[in-house]
Simulated scan of single mutants.
Amino acid sequence: MEAVMKPKRLNWWAFRAGFAFLWTFTLIIQVEAQVVTDGLLSYYTLDKNDIVGDTVKDLIGGKDGTIVGEPESIEGHLGDALNFGGKPDCVELPIIFNIGEKPASYEAWFLKTPNSRIGWQYILTNKTNFFDHFFRLGFNQNTGQLRYYTEQANNIRKAWVTDEDYADGKWHHVVATREADKAQVYVDSVLVKEEEAMSGNLGGGETNWNIAQDGNTDGYLIGAVDEVRIYKKALTPEEITQNFESQGLAVQPTGKLSLTWGRIKAAQSYR
């Protein structure tokens, strides 16, 4: 009589261990790919899902912004972005924090085309008039060169521009930092400018902030902006590289991490 071959019993312990390892590995990749959250005050993804009517959600600090004009939602560097067509298109933000003499970093992805080099244009600012304390990050007049101001009352300022022109129709990542009297600008995770900055009060605690205009109803942006983040510290080169390579927050407010761990536990208890 021929022997009947019995199917081998599946080793469920090995299966569970392998499944748990796979999910854990996925989580590690997600964590490595997330943006730096240490010191992060406000985060505007500018995705359609994070815009309700004219309200632009701040995923971290709850400092929601308000759309003015009719910027167009387009495909961004990560998810969706807002494409601004000049005046009056912008996003008005509330007071984010009182910068004063403290360190800070301002970050965004932007896209400008060669034919958008018209006048002064700005990405982010806390300015409301020329006689206050403020910073401005934008573009030099009639060029695609980035311009970074640190300014104190009565037009006492340090302002300089990058050597390269970035109005090339491509997405670029910019981070501008200020700590004490040192300012830096990184583009696509590379330090492109380091200069002296105003070390004194840069305001921010009494005036609203703005995306895509200079805060004085002028300097409106012609171009697209995505993934705007504001930090209460000067990001390190390693952190800037991490943000450049990131895919947003690893844990969105929907509780995806809890769901993932729930699946791992379910797999481990499966018989």
Rank of each mutant, 00 (worst) to 15 (best):
R178K: 15
G100C: 03
I118A: 08
H173M: 04
L124R: 00
K158A: 13
D168Y: 04
I95W: 07
I28S: 04
T55P: 00
I156R: 15
G76L: 01
T207S: 13
A250P: 06
K158S: 13
E92A: 11
K182F: 01
V91E: 01
L191I: 03
T260Y: 09
T236W: 02
Q247S: 12
Y106T: 06
R263I: 14
L124C: 06
V68F: 03
T24F: 14
G248H: 11
Q252I: 13
N216P: 02
G62R: 11
P237F: 06
I118Q: 14
K127V: 07
T207C: 08
V56W: 00
N216S: 12
G100N: 08
N126V: 06
S105K: 06
S105C: 09
I28T: 10
N140A: 14
I240H: 01
W171T: 05
N49R: 15
N49M: 10
G144L: 06
L46A: 02
L257C: 05
G39A: 03
K232P: 01
V31M: 11
Y43G: 00
I264G: 01
P237S: 10
L10C: 02
S199C: 02
L137W: 02
K48T: 13
V225H: 08
Q242G: 05
T207I: 04
S189F: 08
I74W: 05
V91C: 03
I28M: 09
G203P: 03
W209I: 02
I118E: 13
N210S: 14
A159L: 05
I264W: 00
I264D: 00
L249S: 06
K6L: 00
D58P: 07
V187S: 09
Q152I: 12
F110K: 02
W12M: 15
L137V: 13
S199W: 10
G39K: 02
S105N: 10
F110M: 11
N140W: 11
Q145R: 15
W261V: 15
V174R: 01
A108M: 03
A212C: 08
A224N: 08
S42L: 03
L46Y: 00
D50P: 00
K170W: 04
E2P: 14
T55S: 12
V91Q: 03
W160G: 05
Y231C: 07
Q184K: 15
S105E: 08
S189I: 09
G76S: 04
Y43P: 01
M1Y: 01
R157A: 12
P94K: 06
I230W: 02
R117G: 02
D47V: 00
H133C: 13
Y186S: 11
S105A: 15
Y44T: 07
T113E: 12
A234K: 05
L22K: 05
D168Q: 10
T45Q: 03
F97T: 11
F139P: 07
D165C: 06
D47K: 03
Q121V: 04
G61M: 03
T162M: 07
D89N: 11
T113K: 12
A180K: 15
D58S: 09
G203N: 05
L27Q: 13
P94G: 11
M5E: 00
L40D: 00
G79T: 00
G219N: 10
